[in-house]
Simulated scan of single mutants.
Amino acid sequence: MRGMEIRDRADLYKSYFSDCKAVEPVKSLLHKGVPVDKLDALEAIRALNTELSDLYMVEIPVITCWVRDSNYVPETREIYLTEPDLKDFLHNFRHHLQNIERRYERRGLTTEGNQEIAQMPYKDCLYKLRGEDDAIAWSKMLLDICNHKS
């Protein structure tokens, strides 16, 4: 069985998550403009990290930059960024939310409390890595919404 294409998944997410908690902070950052200076960009992403963590009521993942490829380490709850890139940060922050959602008391975290669609992020996937399709589509959906809303 062929999985759902990422573009289609991102479009589907727009119908379910267009008003998700992350929209306003990401839109605000994009409206201000992500700084060109790499250190300033990293500080802007770290501020967004704190804001999103507060909104989703999750511990703040540590962000480490310029050490290795962009990824999320569930054991240490650390986001590695090759460069301070908003898309990579959002992708890996979503993995952080997925990791926390695995705790029973946080079920529904990635679907903003909508239990009816709780398995949607993990069904009809292209990638074998659990949650990868969801993380890519969620970050794409957010950037699409935030770049097109006024």
Score class of each variant (00 low, 15 high):
residue 142 L to G: 11
residue 114 N to D: 15
residue 132 E to F: 00
residue 65 C to Q: 01
residue 115 Q to V: 12
residue 71 N to E: 12
residue 81 L to S: 03
residue 89 F to H: 07
residue 78 E to D: 13
residue 127 Y to H: 08
residue 118 A to C: 14
residue 141 M to F: 00
residue 107 R to M: 14
residue 101 E to M: 05
residue 137 A to G: 03
residue 83 E to H: 11
residue 120 M to D: 12
residue 100 I to R: 12
residue 98 Q to W: 08
residue 98 Q to I: 10
residue 67 V to F: 03
residue 81 L to K: 12
residue 73 V to N: 14
residue 64 T to E: 12
residue 93 F to A: 10
residue 91 H to K: 15
residue 69 D to S: 10
residue 108 G to H: 10
residue 94 R to T: 15
residue 122 Y to Q: 07
residue 97 L to I: 03
residue 87 K to I: 07
residue 60 I to Q: 15
residue 68 R to G: 06
residue 80 Y to A: 06
residue 101 E to C: 06
residue 134 D to L: 00
residue 138 W to A: 15
residue 142 L to V: 03
residue 137 A to K: 00
residue 136 I to H: 14
residue 144 D to F: 00
residue 58 V to A: 05
residue 141 M to W: 02
residue 92 N to L: 09
residue 144 D to T: 06
residue 123 K to Q: 13
residue 56 Y to M: 07
residue 121 P to T: 11
residue 125 C to S: 10
residue 72 Y to T: 01
residue 143 L to I: 06
residue 93 F to P: 05
residue 113 G to H: 02
residue 69 D to I: 04
residue 108 G to R: 02
residue 71 N to F: 07
residue 98 Q to M: 13
residue 110 T to R: 01
residue 73 V to S: 08
residue 136 I to G: 09
residue 93 F to V: 09
residue 98 Q to D: 15
residue 104 Y to W: 11
residue 88 D to K: 01
residue 138 W to T: 06
residue 81 L to P: 03
residue 113 G to C: 01
residue 98 Q to T: 15
residue 123 K to C: 05
residue 109 L to Q: 09
residue 113 G to W: 00
residue 100 I to Y: 02
residue 85 D to L: 05
residue 124 D to T: 08
residue 105 E to D: 14
residue 74 P to C: 02
residue 135 A to M: 08
residue 124 D to F: 10
residue 135 A to S: 12
residue 84 P to V: 06
residue 125 C to I: 04
residue 108 G to P: 11
residue 66 W to T: 08
residue 60 I to C: 08
residue 66 W to L: 07
residue 125 C to P: 00
residue 71 N to R: 12
residue 82 T to Y: 10
residue 58 V to F: 00
residue 95 H to F: 10
residue 113 G to F: 01
residue 129 L to S: 11
residue 106 R to K: 15
residue 105 E to W: 04
residue 136 I to S: 08
residue 123 K to I: 14
residue 107 R to S: 13
